[in-house]
Nucleic acid binder design. Structure first.
Lengths: 132, 132
DNA sequence: TCGATAGTCAAGCAACTGGTTCAGTATGCG
DNA sequence: CGCATACTGAACCAGTTGCTTGACTATCGA
């Protein structure tokens, strides 16, 4: 087992989310999630110059989302699941935190309710301060 | 602010990931994941003008990640878990796709291996085309 | 060897971003 | 009332992004 770098490396979420914010780049990630591909393969469905596609590849690679290596004249790109997982993890942590707090609020409301005619749908608890 | 109704909307991943790409905005999301907050509360740890914070709030709200409503003179922001979940879902789908394909590749390699001295660490299968 | 293929580099450009300041408006409170 | 709070709007500005074109290098295959 190779324990090289990135064992406890803080992935650069700025760059990762920035990379995912472009539809063309998401398209590339989607394509690469089905297996490795060359730069020109990635460019085919994308209606832009190869130069532009290469720039997107560089953005994705700088974010760590993909890796690439050149063999002969073709550069082959593939996805790095680690970074994908860490972006997913950041969102998941915040989401579960929100849900946990909403549940607690729900419990609190249930406990202190004298008149139980209040809303019970958890989604409705997201705007708890809208009425005077 | 942006009162656009997005009821059965396809969440705009461009805007969502773009919103998450800024550390200040992620800080706000993190804060809001612990409960609703006003704009000036959000601004406190952020070392920038209130105007700037408000602009970030507008970006987050346009992405659907947060909602806000004004009561008296204070605007209270809260997180929308739905959009958070859809961003998480997009990443998760790609990640599981990658992992599924890596597993299939692993199985294939295991089946066709005459000499079983090849690497077994799944992470190493991410660069499968580096040899002629 | 020659031409097609695959990528790379550099420069330029319009649009977008993330901040600022200044000048408001509306509300809460003593 | 009068002052502080909390936000809002408009204008401006430097830096970044997402492309483009044109010139160039390197490799593959007949």
């Amino acid at each position: 087992m190779i324990l090289k770098r990135m064992l406890h490396y803080a992935p650069d979420l700025d760059r990762v989310f920035q990379a995912l914010a472009d539809p063309g780049r998401r398209h590339m990630v989607e394509r690469l999630s089905r297996g490795p591909a060359s730069v020109s393969e990635l460019s085919k469905p994308l209606n832009m110059s190869l130069t532009a596609v290469l720039q997107h590849v560089q953005v994705l690679e700088a974010s760590g989302l993909i890796r690439s290596s050149k063999l002969g004249r073709t550069r082959t790109c593939s996805i790095n699941t680690t970074v994908l997982r860490s972006a997913e993890g950041w969102i998941a942590e915040r989401r579960t935190m929100v849900e946990r707090n909403l549940d607690r609020l729900g419990d609190y409301l249930a406990e202190t309710a004298d008149r139980p005619d209040t809303a019970a749908d958890p989604e409705d608890r997201q705007r708890p301060m809208e009425k005077p």
